[in-house]
């Protein structure tokens, strides 16, 4: 157990270094981008002395190293700067928009896991069967169809033509502002205050983007699960399990799946991280007020502090989930440590 704790400590020790790298890279990207944040603030026709004044105020006239130092110091104090577009501190904005992304991505990954993992397991168990072929085609399509095509198609069919789904956004205008903000995730907040009308509306709005994202993620999870399971099912220990006279279900789940569970955790964690950071397109298509939409709009407005802040948060999420899967891997696999 001691060796195991040491390995965990090793996992955690790598965080500061990775984090520093992340900050450095996002900072540099922000500085080398061919966008002048000063013009974004002052406008195209501002007089030169105003531009110079703002430049000094932002500290952009100082050496890059000094700028980075100031950026770091501010970061340590939880200051990501102020967004030009919203005129709020970026941290406030992120706290405002991130819950919506979290809600969307979490719903999507839960659906994707609940469908994708069993689909992959059964497809592998009946490798080469008609069921397997269908699963392969469905998951291949999920990975190859661009997500914005799927999103727009969904909106066109279910919202425009059939009228059975609500349109874009997180909530109907009629319900806007009815639910006090607790977690920022409307489905949960409406349950907390017991506002069931808002709850159903929020859920209906969540369904489409979540399902589109879930399909994309499910395709990946199914393919990985199937590949892992085929490998596991060909193991000698499966012959042993069959020779023991175990039931097919027990061989499949306890022995074959038991051997891939650990590796699958990593895949699932990374898929989740991918959803949290990669919902940018889906959020744009569905006007979902999440971090992705915030990032896109900020980028189009050359709102550098907002872009850097949001990017940093996305990177941090990835880092945390990666670390989590690493820790789980070390805890669950008896062969490690």
């Amino acid at each position: 157990m001691n060796a195991r704790l040491q390995m965990l400590a090793g996992s955690f020790a790598s965080i500061p270094l990775t984090l520093f790298g992340l900050i450095l890279v996002t900072f540099l990207i922000g500085r080398v981008m061919p966008i002048d944040p000063v013009i974004a603030i002052a406008g195209d026709h501002a007089p030169p002395d105003v531009i110079a004044a703002i430049r000094t105020q932002l500290g952009l006239d100082r050496p890059l190293l000094v700028q980075f130092w100031i950026y770091l110091v501010n970061l340590v104090h939880g200051d990501l700067g102020r967004s030009v577009m919203t005129s709020h501190p970026v941290t406030e904005d992120v706290a405002r928009y991130f819950p919506a992304t979290l809600e969307l991505a979490t719903t999507a990954i839960i659906i994707a896991i609940l469908i994708g993992v069993p689909l992959g397991v059964f497809a592998a168990a009946r490798q080469g069967s008609r069921f397997d072929h269908v699963v392969r085609v469905v998951s291949l399509a999920g990975q190859s169809i661009p997500i914005f095509v799927l999103g727009l198609l969904c909106l066109l069919i279910f919202y425009v033509k059939l009228g059975i789904a609500p349109g874009t956004g997180q909530l109907d205008v009629a319900y806007e502002g009815m639910v006090p903000r607790v977690t920022g995730m409307l489905v949960i907040d409406s349950v907390i205050v017991g506002d069931w009308d808002s709850f159903w509306d929020a859920l209906a709005h969540l369904a489409q983007p979540a399902l589109v994202l879930a399909y994309f993620s499910m395709a990946y999870i199914t393919r990985m699960t199937r590949a892992f399971m085929i490998e596991s099912l060909s193991g000698e220990y499966i012959i042993t399990a069959r020779a023991k006279g175990l039931s097919a279900a027990r061989i499949l789940w306890r022995h074959a799946f038991g051997n891939i569970a650990v590796r699958l955790v990593t895949v699932l964690a990374l898929a989740y991280a991918g959803l949290l950071e990669g919902a940018v397109i889906t959020e744009t298509v569905f006007s979902w007020p999440g971090l992705g939409l915030y990032l896109t709009v900020s980028l189009l407005n050359a709102d550098m502090n907002a872009v850097l802040g949001a990017t940093l948060v996305v990177g941090l999420v990835y880092l945390v989930l990666n670390l989590l899967s690493d820790v789980l891997y070390r805890l669950l696999d008896p062969r490690v440590a």
């Binding site: 000698e236 220990y237 012959i239 042993t240 399990a241 022995h255 038991g258 650990v262 696999d333 062969r335």
Partner: peptide, 14 residues
């Protein structure tokens, strides 16, 4: 049935 190599024939995670 006893197989050749216990390294492969025993379930590694049990």
């Amino acid at each position: 049935l006893i197989l050749q190599d216990p390294k492969f024939s025993l379930n590694p995670v049990m």
